[in-house]
């Protein structure tokens, strides 16, 4: 009976704790956005966003990340149904989309650095690389976590603790997509409007 009592305690508390962590991470990104907004005109004679950004590749990145957020939701639906194969399938798709996003971003960064427009070029580029790079770092952490969870689901199946961890991972992944909306709008679209 005492076992039942332990099992009965639902997951709302750990999930609330994780939600609070996500909210504090939003504050971290807000400070980076504020820094960017203050510095984006300080190009020090270097290129500005209008000269630098490639809108087509940015749209591709955005749609890939958005789709991965959607497939992550589908994976969670499968997990709650207890459908192990579908859960694995959708998380693998989410993972591959995440890797695609990261590859596109790394290609963009490498291109900028090769043209001499690295974070050392100007205040604008320092703020740009810090903001977008921090998001990319979060994506990398999310992808590593997803890989670990895939092994856990394959080896242990969909127990209560595993589902709780998957729920946290999916919250983290949706949160990263939400941060990207603002990077897409404030950094890329704002930068692509002719001065």
């Amino acid at each position: 009976m005492s076992m039942t009592a332990i099992v009965r305690t639902d997951d709302s508390k750990p999930l609330l704790g994780f939600w609070i962590y996500i909210m504090t991470d939003c504050v971290l990104f807000a400070s980076l956005f504020a820094t960017y907004a203050v510095l984006y005109q300080n190009t020090n004679g270097g290129p500005d966003g209008y000269q630098l950004f490639n809108l087509k590749s940015v749209l591709a990145e955005t749609l890939v990340l958005l789709t991965s957020s959607f497939t992550c939701g589908l994976a969670m639906l499968a997990a709650h149904r207890g459908d192990r194969r579908q859960t694995i399938l959708w998380f693998v798709i989410t993972f591959l989309l995440g890797v695609t996003f990261l590859t596109l971003e790394a290609t963009e960064f490498r291109h900028f650095v090769q043209m001499g427009d690295s974070w050392r070029r100007s205040g604008f580029l320092s703020a740009f690389f810090t903001l977008v790079g921090t998001h990319g770092l979060h994506i990398t952490v999310g992808l590593s976590w997803m890989l670990i969870m895939l092994f856990e689901v394959i080896h242990k199946g969909l127990g209560r603790i595993t589902i709780r961890r998957l729920t946290m991972l999916s919250m983290f992944w949706h949160f990263l997509d939400i941060i990207w909306i603002f990077i897409f709008t404030i950094v890329y679209l704002r930068g692509a409007i002719a001065p």
Binding site: D10, S12, L55, L66, F70, L77, H80, I181, F184, T185
Partner: peptide, 26 residues
């Protein structure tokens, strides 16, 4: 507690709206 879980309808709706808003802005 299932009150903070999604449904297929909620994910599909969110996805379609998001794509629409992204492409409009772009």
């Amino acid at each position: 507690d299932s009150s903070t879980r999604g449904t297929l309808a909620s994910y599909v709706t969110g996805y379609i709206f998001s794509i629409y808003l992204t492409i409009t802005a772009w």
